[in-house]
Design a protein around this nucleic acid. Sequence first.
DNA 1: TCAAAAGTGTTCTGTTTACACCCATGG
DNA 2: CCATGGGTGTAAACAGAACACTTTTGA
Lengths: 230, 230
Amino acid sequence: MPSNIYSNTDKILIAVDCIIFGFDKGALKILLIKRDFEPELGKWSLMGGFLKEEENLDEAAIRILYDLTGLRTIYMEQLYTFSKVDRDPVARTLSVAYYALIDIAMHDKELIQNHSAQWFSLDKAPDLIFDHNKMVEKAIARLKRRALSKPIGFELLPPKFTMRQLQKLYESILNKKLDKRNFINKINSFGILVRLDEKDTNASKKGAYLYTFDKVKYDEKVLEGFNFKI
Amino acid sequence: MPSNIYSNTDKILIAVDCIIFGFDKGALKILLIKRDFEPELGKWSLMGGFLKEEENLDEAAIRILYDLTGLRTIYMEQLYTFSKVDRDPVARTLSVAYYALIDIAMHDKELIQNHSAQWFSLDKAPDLIFDHNKMVEKAIARLKRRALSKPIGFELLPPKFTMRQLQKLYESILNKKLDKRNFINKINSFGILVRLDEKDTNASKKGAYLYTFDKVKYDEKVLEGFNFKI
DNA sequence: TCAAAAGTGTTCTGTTTACACCCATGG
DNA sequence: CCATGGGTGTAAACAGAACACTTTTGA
C-alpha cells in the first residue's frame, strides 16, 4: 500500500464488461450488443457499465447482467482487469472483465432485443470495440481451463439434457471432437449425472435418454476439482 | 461499456498490491513491510502503491516492485482485483493484486531494509492489514496451480541449484512431501534441466550435482504447459 | 567407522486411448 | 425397409505410485 498520502493520487473510472456465454444448437455462443451511443456507435461490444461508489465489482457485474438478460442467479466470475492507458479514447478507464455462463433458454428475450443484443457463435462473432476481443479470448481460455478441472454444464444447459448435448458442449468449449464412448465412461465415472426415464426424440427417431445433474455431487466436484483430460 | 455518459460516473482510487514470493533455505517466503504511516501504522502489509494516470497496471506493479527490491526483470502476473466497498477505511479504493516470483539472493538487501521489509515463511507470516491476507491466500492457490501446469523455478532459484532444492521448492509450493525418485524421473522427462559437472557440498559430504535450466526448452514448456501431477 | 545426504530402476496399478457393431424408430 | 442417431465394452499402451539399497565422505 501507499508510501505517500491518498489525497494527491489519481482517481480513475472503473468499467465492468461481461462476457456472457450461452450454449444453443450444439454451439457455444456469446451475447453482444450493438452500441447506440458514442464512441463507436453502431459497433458491437460486450455488455458493460461503470462501477458505482457504493457497490463492489461482483455486485456491479450482477447488476449489469441483470439489466441485459433479466437473470440473477447465474454463474459469474471475475476474469482480469484491463488497463491500457488509451484503451478507451474518451477517458482513462480501467475495465474489469467478468465472464458469465447462462442457459440461453432462461433469459428474457425481450429485454435482450430492447438492448439490440444478439447471440453469436464464437467463430461468427464480429469484431468488437476497444480491447473487447482480447477480453473474449481470455474468457474462452479460462472457460477451457475450467471445463478441464471442474464439472461444467449446469449453468449452460437446460435442466434436462441428453448425453449428446453435454458432449457437444464440451466439444465446443475444448474445440475438438471427442470419442462418444470415452466421453460417456469418463463423465459417468464422476457420478454427477442422473439418467431419467424420459427420452428426447427431437434429434432422433430412437430417442435419447434425458439426464439431470445430481447437484449435490456436482457441487462436491466443483469444490474438489477433477482432471478431465479427454 | 456504458449506456450512460462518462461524465457523471464515479472515479475511484486504484491501488496495486504485490505478493512477492521468494525461496530460501528450503522454504517458500513472502516479503512484507511494516507500515510507517497511517492507517494501520506499525502493522504488516503487502508492498503497494497507487496507479498513476499515465501508466497501466503492469507498469505500476513493476515500478512498485522495483522501488522495494531493486529488481526489474522478474516474473509478475496480475492476480485479482479486490473491491469490497469498505476494504480501505480511509477512502474507497480498488486494489489490483499482482504476484511476483524473485530469487531472494538477487534483490537489493539494503533497499529492503530501508523499507523495513522482511521475508516471512508462509506459515510464520503475521496477520496483515485490510484484505491482504485474502490476497496472499489467492496468490498461493494461483502459484500452486501454476506449478502443476508449467515449469517453475527459474524465477525463484539461483542460477545453479541442486535437484533437492528444486524438489523442496515444489514441496513447499504444493505443501506436501514428494517421492525423490518419482520427482527426478518426472522432472527429467520434461528435458528442461542441464546437469553440470559441478557439485554443491554445502548440504552433504558426498556433494550434490548442480543443475541449470535449459532456458529454451523451459520457455517452450511454459508456452505449451504440462501436467505435473505428482 | 558411522552418520547424513545423494543417487539410482523396477514392478504394480489405474487411466487413457482406440476402436465397431447392434438397436429403435419415423418416414 | 432403410437412414439416422443412440447405446454399449474391451484390449493395448501409457503414466503414476510405491518402494530399498548402495555410495561418498567429513567429522
